[in-house]
Amino acid sequence: MKFTGTDSYVASDDLRVAVNAAIALQRPLLIKGEPGTGKTVLAHEVAKALKAPIIEWHIKSTTKAQQGLYEYDAVSRLRDSQLGDERVKDIANYIKKGKLWEGFTSTERPVLLIDEIDKADIEFPNDLLLELDRMEFYVYETQQVIKAEQRPIVMITSNNEKELPDAFLRRCFFHYIRFPDRETMTQIVDVHFPDLQRNLLREALNVFYDIREVPGLKKKPSTSELLDWLKLLMVEDMSPDALRSKDSKQLIPPLHGALLKNEQDVHLFERLAFMARREQRQ
């Protein structure tokens, strides 16, 4: 079982090693990085490459660790008791499996994605320590121990909104997805749009990296935004010349909505572009 990237995902060497280490040593892999650099996609691609099933657990601010293990549906049981349903006698009928349970009992070794763990309450990671370490937990209602027959490949993504506790970090491997340089970016774009015109790509990347250089942007555009934008450019059949902002009448690149996500950024960019043009004239 070795991950070497897929035909739709360009994995850098360091990422590849980190993923393989996590697979070989059966530890969870914590992935951080700017939004839109492919953290979540990675889990899908690893699953695809290893031909393993993927189990996704998306974390929200209200998610509790217990929900990942199991939930006891008391309401259904109460209702069934009213209706005289036979199932009511066995409490096991009302235990709803959580994502971790699913992962632990899967027949094939699955990839378990715990997405955006930082969104949850500050204690959430601590509540999962034992479960992720030993890959087992206890169901109080039925008094059984659920133990993973084969430890799932656990991938955890975080956007750094909250700091994770040390005890949790100890149990994980860590990888920070760096923003791709131009060369890697070209590879990534190639993978997604193989028939993109060379010169269009060159101009688009120029514009893209220029925008990322603009100081004070609230949200820098990232890989996923670039890919969206390129798709739009292709749909609109934009010519490379239109992107050459230097001599174009437009201040900001066409279809900028895909790159700049809030109006302050658009204003900022317009102002800078305006100033740059004024300087050119003088």
Binding site: D14, V17, N20, A24, L25, K32, R170, C172, F174
Partner: peptide, 28 residues
Amino acid sequence: MEGMDKGVSDYSVDDFYYLSRAILVKDE
């Protein structure tokens, strides 16, 4: 050590760097 034992880094300094970084560093 376990990772080295299982041959994740494969005798390349490069990979060893990446492996040790993934294991030992927990925060960017």
